[in-house]
């Protein structure tokens, strides 16, 4: 159960190898969470998952379970959610952290690869998110933390495959949050800017970069306050209020 000061007991991370997902899980464990399921493709014998699990145990988790999860196989997602609930009990917080940033130029050269990345970044979240929502609605409580991106708030020329997928995810998460209103379950929409991770190492940093730890802090704060949307860093909210108003010819010329 989420308690009165925002701490949870159990966490499911979808995308257990994600640096941001792991940082969020670690933060929630430090705040009191004891049971974690790390869902990822090939989770059972993944060195990356084992490393995250060790980190979480060192932070105080009493149980960390690897769980097989393939974003590209939507027909399996409901079963993954049920398996997670069997392992850790009620899902107090579910961190929806999987996605592929990729390389825009490569995507433009390989449309099929672009579509596969869009599946990981968007449509996989539709099936997983709806499966999670059904479980949270039944249990009468729980928070789905959706890691969107400012890339989806207004899509840029420089990364429009990724950005459009995040735009879809962002809209989906808003709608799902409204659908869950009054059910005891809710969606916490997280909009980070550029976050320094392995996934983003090949991209030059955008203004107002953040670390996975800052995203984790924002998620913990959002759980505590019951916020619907958090921006990381917070000032991006204002920045993007301005960005959204930029005229198209100007927006188009933004540096890659």
């Amino acid at each position: 159960m989420r308690n009165a000061v925002g701490a949870v007991d159990s966490v499911l991370v979808l995308g257990g190898r994600s640096e941001i997902g792991a940082a969020v899980a670690e933060r929630l464990v430090r705040d009191g969470a004891r049971r974690v399921a790390l869902a990822a493709r090939g989770a059972a014998d993944s060195a990356g998952i084992a490393e995250v699990a060790a980190r979480l145990r060192a932070a105080g988790a009493s149980e960390v379970h690897p769980l097989e999860f393939d974003a590209a196989r939507p027909e399996t997602h409901a079963a993954v959610v049920e398996a997670a609930a069997e392992l850790v009990g009620d899902l107090d917080a579910v961190v929806d952290a999987f996605g592929v940033l990729g390389d825009q130029a490569a995507f433009e050269a390989d449309p099929a690869a672009a579509a596969a990345a869009a599946t990981a970044t968007y449509t996989g979240h539709v099936s997983a998110g709806l499966a999670v929502a059904r479980r949270l609605r039944e249990q009468g409580h729980g928070t789905l933390v959706v890691l969107s991106s400012v890339a989806g708030v207004r899509v840029r020329r420089a990364n429009f495959v990724y950005g459009s997928a995040k735009a879809g995810l962002d809209g989906f998460a808003q709608g799902l949050g409204d659908a869950l209103h009054g059910s005891g379950a809710r969606v916490l929409l997280v909009r980070p800017g550029y976050v320094r991770t392995r996934m983003s190492a090949h991209v030059s940093a955008a203004p107002f970069p953040a670390t996975p730890g800052q995203v984790a802090d924002a998620v913990a704060e959002g759980l505590r306050t019951g916020a619907e949307t958090v921006w990381v860093p917070r000032r991006l909210r204002l920045v993007f209020a301005g960005m959204r108003a930029l005229p198209r010819p100007l927006w188009r010329r933004l540096p890659r």
Binding site: M1, R2, N3, A4, V5, R137, G140, H141, G182, S183, G184, A185
Partner: peptide
Amino acid sequence: WGRTSPTAA
């Protein structure tokens, strides 16, 4: 009475 942690039942 503290109005924290709502859950549905």
